[in-house]
Design a protein around this nucleic acid. Structure first.
Lengths: 208, 208
DNA sequence: GGCCGTATCAGCCAAAAGGTGGAGAGACCA
DNA sequence: TGGTCTCTCCACCTTTTGGCTGATACGGCC
């Protein structure tokens, strides 16, 4: 039996020590490092060379989880990344999978679920919490309602109340492009105004 | 030195074991029980008679944290309650304090902060995370940021994505009046656009 | 009675957002 | 190779929203 080395990435000390305590009960799993930000995660992944990275998506200031996943996939592609976060937002799931995440767990997952995900990840299996799987399934049934990664990214910023101009600056695209994306988002969400899109996104998609 | 008994209430297994691990490092603090819901919390508080209850506000289905606090204050008033949650929403803070919480910690709090809060609570001291204190302070300094009933009503409809015209129809007032109310709401919320107002309202005021 | 807060309405102007239609580049795939 | 998807950009036009100023009316309150 080989020991599976795991790196924990979460800005909450409490969550890190909880995961450490839980994973510590398993003989075949060992936490080899911790990081509290995306930047730290890249450094720690390089240094500890874990088999699995358990990562939160929301991490206060600095690099966000999605960006960290992308960079990790580039630098240390042999490491399996499992997202471990609080919300099952459609957009986050799409973006995380797109960025290269192997699994997607919610923080209220049972310990057994977490163990299974870690063990599965090293074998190339995707493990996700039931609510996440259900959302993905629903998306498959309505393929024309799936937001593209770029649209999801834009929607996420939209829910923070940014104007078209600000969205453009933030994403390094023109205002015209922002409007195009927005029109597509509205069509997919089935709304007509940005106000309704924000309301729908925050409530239905669990964005915050 | 007396040992401080603590009850943990959180629906996330990971968070409970993290707190347990952290608090376990302190000789004068002992976790005497855990609960994953408001209902369980009431039962556990009765049975274990802890000196301090560390409680999350958001707890999936069933009784929410605020309701649990109220009930605990009634049944076991000698126990100090510390809120331990992810968000520093104005509405949540006010409601928690109103319900009888002694302290308010965010989940990204440093371990020392958590220890200090637990020790302070048994001595009747209120300990809160810096961002929380800052918000409370702001509220005290800007009492004119409280929405009038009519404004709150309008804001609530606004978060459903309605246009000014629709808001007017729904509230039986002219569009001009809607705009007046909106201007006041924006000023009070400290935003400039309806998009930002919706985002702020749903997130900060806990509207949904 | 006068002051203040709240709720109602108007008009004007500038800015932002939304609708329509079109188009090119690159990736991917059958 | 041709089709499809995604992302990017443009122009033109209409509608909506926001900023500003000002007004009336009702109910407490000192």
């Amino acid at each position: 039996m080989t020991t599976i080395s795991v790196l924990l990435v979460d800005d909450h000390t409490v969550v890190r020590s909880g995961l450490k305590a839980l994973l510590g009960t398993q003989a075949d799993i060992a936490v080899v490092g911790e990081a509290a930000s995306g930047e730290e995660a890249l450094e720690a992944a390089q240094r500890h060379q874990p088999a699995v990275v358990l990562m939160d998506l929301a991490m206060g200031a600095g690099m966000d989880g999605i960006e960290a996943i992308k960079q990790l996939r580039q630098r240390t592609p042999q490491q399996a990344i499992i997202v471990f976060t609080t919300y099952d937002s459609d957009a986050d799931i799409v973006r995380a999978v797109d960025a290269g995440a192997m699994g997607y767990l919610l923080k209220d997952a049972a310990p057994e679920e977490i163990f299974a995900a870690v063990r599965g990840a090293v074998q190339g299996k995707s493990v996700m919490s039931a609510p996440v799987a259900s959302r993905l399934f629903q998306q498959l049934r309505h393929p024309d309602e799936i937001l593209t990664p770029r649209e999801a990214e834009l929607l996420s910023l939209l829910t923070q109340g940014l104007s078209n101009r600000d969205l453009g600056k933030r994403l390094f695209i023109s205002e015209a492009t922002v409007k195009t994306h927005l029109a597509h988002i509205y069509a997919k969400l089935g709304v007509e105004t940005r106000a309704a899109a924000i309301a729908t996104a925050i409530r239905r998609e669990g964005m915050r």
